[in-house]
Design a protein around this nucleic acid. Structure first.
Lengths: 203, 203
DNA sequence: ACTCCGGCTACACGCTTGTGTAGTAGGCTG
DNA sequence: CAGCCTACTACACAAGCGTGTAGCCGGAGT
């Protein structure tokens, strides 16, 4: 299938796949080497270390995604949402959660884009920074919680069909208010009370 | 501070803290023992194995949370949202993501509660199951993505102040539609096109 | 007073991890 | 043809992991 690629490329692909599946710590050098059909020593030869491999994967995934769509962080660009692209996104998010500096930088850029987008809307937002952060994190969660989502839907959300079902649901979710203004006010008041208590405790 | 507790209880607390922080695989038996101020052998003596310890933590966290509020999965019950409760929730969610059967069962119950709640509203939802699943996963993401959230806000969201800021933002987010019906329709159409393509490929 | 048992520690074992090293095959370049 | 650099493998190493075992200690039961 992809055995006509360079060994180096095969290692990279295998690493992205396994890192995305099991996390950076969960995927071992030997597993990646076996998945790529090479010895574990070759991995070290090409990438220096596991950390080096992760960096290379970060860089490559980022460049591939930006090559496809200039602002890949905006998930409204649904065209070209191939399984391959989904995998790359899933990898980058996972790598970010596992402490990748590249990922952190990407997250910062997501926030930046998000704040720009927010400025174009007429949404009433008290704390834009927090708003965009929460929104970003929630969008990412559909990637990170793959197992739970699959369990809930009874289908692997890596497959386009279940994936589409999930995105449809997210559209339902974002196109209408889930709580009434009164409920929001109530909750807000409760939060303020909580914050006041915390303040007292601290003093 | 909590050194007047049983050694067994101290181990449990230390495990919950470290599991929540670093994940089940990331926290080692020796680290937990040291955090609790005991030998690693005692851990085995009381809980049999690391897996046994995790099970005990799951069970305890669940019972503590249900003791506080019958339906703790509903995060609208803000009263009594102490740092302790936040930690327990964070632990359970993390444990769930790391493959805990107890956690999976809890997630199922969350979905059940969610669908009941959804029935009481007049929201237009095409796929209730997927809707509730996405919503649940998104709520959980505020716990799981602690590091990224803290980075975005410039403050530790484990602290009540930043935590409240985050929840306020989530209220903003859920109390108004983020995309217009037209945008939703457009996106929906794009998704259908995508699904159709995928169907063709499969045939 | 003796025993016994549960809480508790110290230490060792086997395994897996990432990494380091030595060496081989093969296609360039002189 | 000789030299050599690069891709690549096989094997060894130290460290850290979860787990297993042997034994110490003090208080309760008889």
């Amino acid at each position: 299938m992809s055995s006509d690629l360079t060994a180096r490329a095969r290692i990279r692909d295998a690493a992205i796949k396994l890192f995305a599946e099991r996390g950076v710590d969960g995927a071992t050098v030997r597993d990646i080497a076996q998945e790529a059909g090479v010895s574990s020593g070759l991995l070290r030869h090409h990438f220096g270390s596991k950390e080096g491999l992760r960096d290379a994967c970060d860089e490559w995934a980022l460049s591939e995604l930006t090559k496809i769509s200039g602002r890949f962080t905006d998930f409204r660009t649904l065209d070209g949402l191939t399984p391959r692209v989904m995998l790359l996104q899933r990898y980058l998010i996972r790598s970010t959660m596992d402490g990748s500096p590249t990922g952190a930088a990407i997250f910062d850029r997501m926030l930046e884009y998000g704040e720009q987008w927010l400025a174009t809307t007429d949404l009433k937002v008290a704390d834009p920074r927090a708003f965009v952060a929460v929104l970003s994190v929630m969008k990412m969660s559909m990637f990170t919680m793959r197992d739970l989502m699959s369990r809930a839907l009874g289908a692997d959300v890596t497959e386009p069909a279940a994936w589409a079902r999930m995105l449809q649901a997210s559209l339902d979710l974002f196109s209408q208010p889930l709580i009434t203004p009164e409920q929001a006010l109530q909750a807000r008041a409760a939060l303020d009370r909580l914050a006041a208590e915390a303040g007292e405790d601290a003093s």
